[in-house]
């Protein structure tokens, strides 16, 4: 399945808006959430085809948020995106069901490719 609706979750509003603009310019529907609660609301409503989730959020650890998202929607592809990664945190993210774990700054085309691959893997 090719993704159409992408939910971006990050506590940095500037980064969020830049990414959203870039994705919209490539014809994706984008919603943004500044914290885990707002993200969960969208996931519960069944809106996103994929989630791009920052590892550090205002109201929760990104990994905790990942677990909550996965509890609501186990097959929903979630790509973790972080500014300060350790290998251990990437393994933790993968163990909790992330489809991929990437580092900022990321090229937008690269991110889209990873979203598409994650959705394809989830749909197989």
């Amino acid at each position: 399945m090719l993704p159409k609706n992408i939910l971006l979750v990050d506590d940095e509003s500037e980064f969020l808006e830049t990414m959203a603009r870039r994705l919209r310019r490539r014809s994706y529907e984008v919603k943004t959430a500044l914290d885990c609660a707002a993200a969960l609301a969208e996931v519960q409503a069944g809106w996103p085809d994929a989630v791009v989730l920052d590892v550090m959020l205002g109201d929760a650890d990104g990994i905790e948020c990942l677990c909550l998202v996965k509890r609501v929607a186990p097959r929903l592809p979630v790509i973790m995106l972080t500014g300060h990664a350790s290998l251990q945190s990437s393994i933790l993210g993968m163990e909790q069901g992330a489809s991929n774990y990437c580092l900022k700054p990321i090229d937008i085309e690269d991110l889209i490719e990873r979203i598409i691959i994650a959705c394809k893997e989830a749909g197989d």
């Binding site: 990664a85 290998l87 990437s90 393994i91 993968m94 990437c102 580092l103």
Partner: peptide, 12 residues
Amino acid sequence: RGELTALTVNVY
């Protein structure tokens, strides 16, 4: 970090 994280994820 980017390459080694990607490698770790793929090996995982």
